[in-house]
Design a protein around this nucleic acid. Structure first.
Lengths: 345, 345
DNA sequence: GTGAAAGCGCTAACAC
DNA sequence: GTGTTAGCGCTTTCAC
């Protein structure tokens, strides 16, 4: 097998405990001895075995990161950032994909439990109740979800939706549509509430369409309904849905942004590369990944005590080419009574 | 702490070794006893501690997966497939991102070494020599690279490039350009060789442009050069480069596919969603992920004996909207001598 | 400041 | 078929 602490001890002419101390509590060992041990260690290419170490310390220095779908363009930047940040702090991370299956999610958590110090759950599919129960045995941080007693990082899509509505109304749009996400999505619900309120405040009409599949297909399929409600500006659940919608509209002879303004959410590469380039609500996914790891490590250190922390990350509208001023005549006929809008604030 | 094998033994009224056997060699224990042990185990919620198990067996049941950049759209499908397949076989996977840094790659491998049974290296940035050396201590599988003594999964981009050239020449294009990837890319070199040979065989001219950054920017920047060589059809190193090129051409008043045909490589979402939809060489990334894990597990089981296996995966051209027949008059004037092409085969 | 010894949770001979 | 024992690589009392 590989080189162990015993080999180093022998080579340095000290006892194993001294070698152990040199690595886990260097200040407790005489400088000279330390040098000698370190020299022997590098000479032999010794690396402490984390797994063995974990057996006595109870700290694996590993984290779990569980997402619904690695291939969904929303996740990779988050995974990348979480992994990089964890590494900086001396942790390795298991990345697992549940394929949107709650059953698999639970199984994953349980098999991972003994090998990690904590896990980050991104947009979990498990019920709050299940998560709470599992949370008793292992530190968790949830992303885009609120679970009693657990730290969470939330992305403020509500404010993003508000910005999107303002952007559209400032371009003169008065009839808006919101393409919601899948049933039960926390994000979708936040968007709906915020957009509805803001539209009302701005005196605009807003039709909510959904639930929709969070995919390109979801957008394409919704195109007829969008046209049906006579909206001139629409906010989609995410970039994929927005892109699908644009396609669906094109198939029906409506060009974006000339005939319709479309706003996405997420700011994925796909949207950035789309033509027209997508106006979208940028989600702070990388920051979310880092923050989640940060909170998790805090929770790990606190070992049960220490209150759960909630961090809300700001979103921001990125204006590109898929939105434009409403065409004259596209709004309710001049002179017709506007929908009464409650003044904001 | 959590529930251990000892608790189960006590509850079931047997000794720890019996419990151990019930989990690692069920056939070696009497059916009745086994039932009793299993009952006690589930009742207590016992799960074997993999890390402790690894200490004696030398098998961690963990794998490492090291990629250059998680956020690059090429990798997620591979990661997803590898992870899913590993899980099916009872393995968890550490995913790590080197940020294209060979130093970091090496460090990662070394710190991971003790915690995994093997690692998959995707498009490694380390030199072959370094990899060979590390390969002595740990089973490796490399993807898109050949390293002496190690199993590898290769994607046949050469054949993909040939298909792309044929597609373009069959559309009447006679002056082609190839946008290479970054310096030292195995993939890029394979493409160059294959495309050059096939173009010659088809009596077409092929200009190689590069090295280019494997990003959208790389494509945009290459636009002037592409125009300069008077090509009417171009094959880009990957989808991102292709998309960038299309943009760069548009900025110069050249529309795709009317004014220029463009073929990408990878078949990422980005290309699928681009407008015009990208004609591209589909890379079997998911299959590569699965195959890599498969080969790795074989190597792990063989423990040093067992020859290194090489698997080459086919690529295939997906024709969409970014390629079209050459415009009349765009080729060398009729009557002018064609470039002599060596007949194929 | 360093050595000796026990033990983390588990498996693997070896007895019986 | 099951119990006993030693030990995987490491940390951590406790002596000295």
């Amino acid at each position: 097998m590989a080189v162990t602490i015993r080999d180093v001890a022998q080579a340095a002419g000290v006892h194993v405990s001294t070698v152990s101390r040199t690595f886990s509590a260097p200040h407790m060992v005489n400088a000279d001895t330390r040098e000698r041990v370190l020299a022997a260690a590098t000479q032999l290419g010794y690396r402490p075995n984390q797994a063995a170490r974990a057996l006595t310390t109870g700290r694996t220095h590993n984290l779990g990161l569980i997402v619904a779908d690695i291939a969904n363009p929303f996740f990779p930047p988050l995974i990348k950032a979480a992994q990089a940040y964890a590494r900086e702090r001396g942790y390795h991370v298991f990345v697992a994909d549940t394929d949107e299956d709650p059953q698999e999610e639970q199984e994953l958590i349980q098999t991972l439990a003994k090998q990690v110090d904590g896990v980050v759950l991104v947009s979990p599919r498990l019920t709050n109740h299940s998560i709470e129960r599992l949370g008793m045995e292992l530190p968790f941080v949830v992303v885009n979800r609120r679970v009693k007693g657990l730290s969470a990082v939330l992305m403020d899509v509500g404010s993003g939706a508000v910005q999107a509505v303002r952007h559209l109304t400032s371009l003169g749009h008065r009839r808006l549509a919101l393409l919601g996400g899948p049933r039960g999505s926390w994000t979708s619900e936040q968007m709906r509430k915020a957009a509805t309120a803001e539209a009302a405040a701005a005196g605009a009409e807003l039709t909510v369409i959904g639930p929709n599949s969070p995919t390109e297909r979801g957008g394409t399929d919704a195109a007829p309904e969008v046209l049906g409600c006579r909206a001139t500006g629409v906010i989609a659940y995410n970039d994929l849905v927005a892109i699908g919608l644009i396609e669906g509209l094109a198939a029906r002879g409506v060009e974006v942004p000339a005939g319709m303004s479309v706003v996405g959410v997420d700011d994925t590469v796909a949207g950035r590369l789309n033509r027209p380039k997508l106006t979208t609500v940028a989600m702070p996914t990388a920051a979310a990944g880092r923050t989640a790891v940060d909170l998790l490590l805090q929770a790990v250190d606190a070992r049960g005590n220490g209150a759960a922390a909630q961090t809300t990350l700001e979103t921001s509208l990125v204006v590109r080419e898929s939105t434009a001023a409403v065409r004259p005549g596209e709004n309710p006929p001049a002179g017709a009574p506007e929908i009464a809008g409650a003044p904001a604030g």
